[in-house]
């Protein structure tokens, strides 16, 4: 049940990210990374094991769709799911501020990692320039959307718990 909902969510989020959100120019050319938000939120809720697994699968799926170097996104998102999952027992799950902060920091750290990985594969990017002009706005954008996505995640978990009870 959870797997089906997550799979549908990942597909829908990528579709929204590639179409509607790509048209909105809130923070320049930067698009919010809905999958990264989902992975961080899921890791916070379910722990490092499930967080890393979702990050791996969703990141791989996105890599396949992106057509670039396959594996960068999977590695980055798996690391994101794993490390935020380590915080699972230390945080209060129902507070929406927690995912907002986690997504902000997670975006800064893991998108920097993502960019460095692309540069290491000879992409013509300048880290110092893009850290300020792309990663920081992306972190703000992602953290603004994080509470909404986290709220839906909580609702989904509640729904699944009721169905399984």
């Amino acid at each position: 049940m959870r797997f089906v909902i997550l799979a549908i969510s990942v597909i829908l989020l990528i579709a929204v990210q590639s179409t509607w959100l790509a048209e909105i120019e809130l923070f320049g050319l930067v698009k919010p990374d809905m999958i990264l938000i989902l992975v961080i939120a899921y890791g916070l809720y379910h722990g490092y094991y499930k967080g890393a697994f979702l990050g791996l699968i969703a990141g791989l799926f996105m890599d396949v769709l992106s057509g670039g170097v396959i594996g960068i996104g999977a590695l980055v998102k798996m690391a994101a799911g794993f490390s935020t999952g380590l915080l699972q027992k230390l945080i209060f799950k129902d507070n929406l501020l927690v995912p907002t902060l986690a997504v902000f920091l997670g975006t800064v750290i893991f998108e920097s990692f993502n960019l460095l990985m692309h540069i290491s594969f000879h992409a013509n990017y300048r880290f110092s320039l893009l850290f300020v002009s792309a990663i920081f706005p992306l972190a703000v954008y992602n953290s603004l959307l994080a509470p909404i996505l986290y709220y839906f995640l909580l609702r989904m978990e509640k729904y699944i718990a009721e169905r399984e009870a």
Partner: peptide, 11 residues
């Protein structure tokens, strides 16, 4: 139809 969902690829 769509653009690349990744911020680091432009297709």
């Amino acid at each position: 139809i769509s653009v690349n969902p990744s911020n680091w690829s432009r297709t």
